[in-house]
Design a protein around this nucleic acid. Structure first.
Lengths: 203, 203
DNA sequence: TCCGTTCCTGACCGGATGGTCAAACCTTTG
DNA sequence: CAAAGGTTTGACCATCCGGTCAGGAACGGA
């Protein structure tokens, strides 16, 4: 999407801007974010932002397009020839790591979907849908072979998404409810989800 | 929170405004929504909105405060003296019905939490936290009595929230991925979640 | 019917916000 | 070192948006 940056300065500043924009967009949503906020976080002036990106929209778009790869990778990595339970648990673990390591990206995505995905419809209707269909077929085959329990494959994927993203998207709620004694919920969440899906998938 | 409406017109218009505001806030977030949009959906003029509510903020607040009750009710209804599995499955079902029947409320809540709950911190830190703590104790007791499987009680609650709210908050994604063949995902989701939690909780 | 109250609106205001631009500044290169 | 090209910014603009206000319309009780 975004053209390759030629000079060192261009690469560095584009990166700085995208990082600052991620910070602000993920916390405030597209309309809630202002160029002034992004500029301040980036430590640059507003006109300078618009020297590197033609508009606020373009910054947002650049973030979304680089996001999708990262987001779909773990599902793509699910190996049809591996051990079903191992593969699925690995997917859950990877997805949870994504929530832990890239919560801002997760919230950016959540914001976008919540608002009807005005800027991602296309990609969701094509890439995401096709990928899920492909992986659902694999899950169905595993079920027919009696290697995991019979379940609705797509809802199975939904439940993985829901539970893993919950820890990033509702971080504030999770943190508050667990209290300050448990500052990092991820180890416990990993154990919990592991147990959950093991029991769910057992034949 | 909002003062009781005296006349018939006041009741009717306040209701119309809150419904329109719910529509717009849940789809656009607080900052993304404009009074003009709300006014148009409500079929009223902008100054008329501000005749009934002192500010945009006040409309949003009125929505949030009426929301919380509805939102906590199902968890409150979990009966300590009932059959554990039945009670938990009932909670899951009620929460899923909430997503199906009040998706806009769900998204309003999601928007709020996503952005760090700037207007709900207090309530989450007190009411919600206390309620979860209380219900977690009940779950723990059930586990110690060997009536359901041993799990982290709070993460169990998180997983219920995550999976049920997913269908409302990510409605667009769910609808797209399932395709137009399956216009109403809720019956299937109900079956899936029922199975999931039965297997998870079985001792 | 008349009158006080409630309800409604067009016109307007001030501040925020996305975006522009000319000019200054800096870096690189011949 | 000087020109060329790349980078940065202060000042500015048009629009949007939350909110105000004076006055008019509709309502309801007597």
């Amino acid at each position: 999407m975004s053209p390759p940056r030629r000079t060192r300065i261009q690469r560095r500043n584009s990166e700085t801007i995208l990082d600052a924009a991620l910070e602000v967009f993920s916390a405030q949503g597209f309309r809630g974010a202002t160029l002034d906020q992004i500029a301040e976080v980036a430590g640059l002036s507003k006109p300078n932002l618009l020297y590197y990106f033609p508009s606020k929209e373009a910054i947002h778009l650049a973030l979304l397009s680089r996001l999708l790869e990262t987001w779909l990778d773990p599902l793509k990595a699910m190996n049809p020839d591996g051990d079903p339970v191992t593969e699925i648990l690995l997917y859950v673990r990877r997805k949870l790591e994504l929530s832990r390591d890239f919560p801002r990206e997760s919230r950016l995505f959540a914001n976008e979907i919540l608002q009807g995905a005005p800027r991602m419809r296309r990609v969701i209707e094509t890439e995401l849908k096709d990928l899920v269909a492909e992986k659902a077929r694999i899950l169905t085959r595993w079920m027919e072979e009696g290697r995991i329990a019979r379940l609705h494959p797509v809802h199975l994927i939904f439940s993985i998404w829901a539970m893993t993203q919950h820890y990033a998207d509702f971080e504030m709620q999770v943190g508050t409810v667990l209290g300050p004694d448990e500052p990092d919920p991820y180890p416990e969440a990993g154990l919990y989800l592991d147990t959950l899906f093991r029991r769910l998938l057992a034949v």
